[in-house]
Amino acid sequence: MLIFSVFKTLTDQTVIVELKNDLLITGVLKSVDQFLNIRLDNIQVSDEARHPHMIAVKNCFIRGSVVRYVQIPADAVDTQLLEDATRREALNQTKR
């Protein structure tokens, strides 16, 4: 839930999604859901010469389960806020 919320705050930011097939896709984050499926706009696949498969694709839906990393702009996150929220969520988990 926490991570889902973080991604929601990153809407309209440019991110780089790295998939588990080593594909790197840069694009503008349009939406996320609870499975961390991602919608990207204005996408660009890195090393297009090697991966011409998606030249005519401008926006896409990425299944959360195939994501390895998402590189996010460092200035788009308040790390102090993140840590506090993480501690709070950890506390809620153990209280149950």
Partner: peptide, 11 residues
């Protein structure tokens, strides 16, 4: 090197 990174837990 990467500035800020989300890492999916299944890996």
């Amino acid at each position: 090197k990467m500035d800020m990174l989300f890492v999916r837990g299944d890996g």
